[in-house]
Amino acid sequence: MQFEYKIQGGDFANAGTASSNVKKVLKQINVDAKIIKRIVVALYEAEINVCAHAFLGKVMVNITPEKIEIDVIDKGPGIQNIDLAMEEGFSTASPAVREMGFGAGMGLPNIKRNTDEMQIESEVNKGTSLRFVNYLISSI
């Protein structure tokens, strides 16, 4: 199954739409609730990041019986120092984003924590590509 969603920078009213839809699909195919939670928390953090920092973006989701692969690609200012952005507490979010309850510098570390594989590439003044994978069969 493949899905694609658009994200508009600054459109916080619709941030979370992709995560919400993916959650419904994963529930329908009976994926374990703990695995679903990890996937949708990671995707929601990624959606918020695009909303908070980029001009526009898209989410591409590919679900197979074994895994879910998600690409979140945006056009925007990019990330100057990815290592720094991966540190808990580092944030360049605006005061407006902080008033929404985000911008604490937890987003990327939380995405890493909730995914089985994660890759991020960024070019300053062009944009950021995030790819992550979660396996759908619990190893427990």
């Binding site: 941030a15 929601y44 929404m100 309850g101 985000f102 911008g103 937890m106």
Partner: peptide, 23 residues
């Protein structure tokens, strides 16, 4: 701070917040 809420891994939980928005 919703960033903190997203790090929680507990069921049967109530969220107490002063943040009255869609997020």
């Amino acid at each position: 701070l919703m960033s903190d809420v997203l790090t929680i891994d507990t069921d049967s939980l109530i969220l107490i917040t002063g943040l009255a928005n869609l997020q």
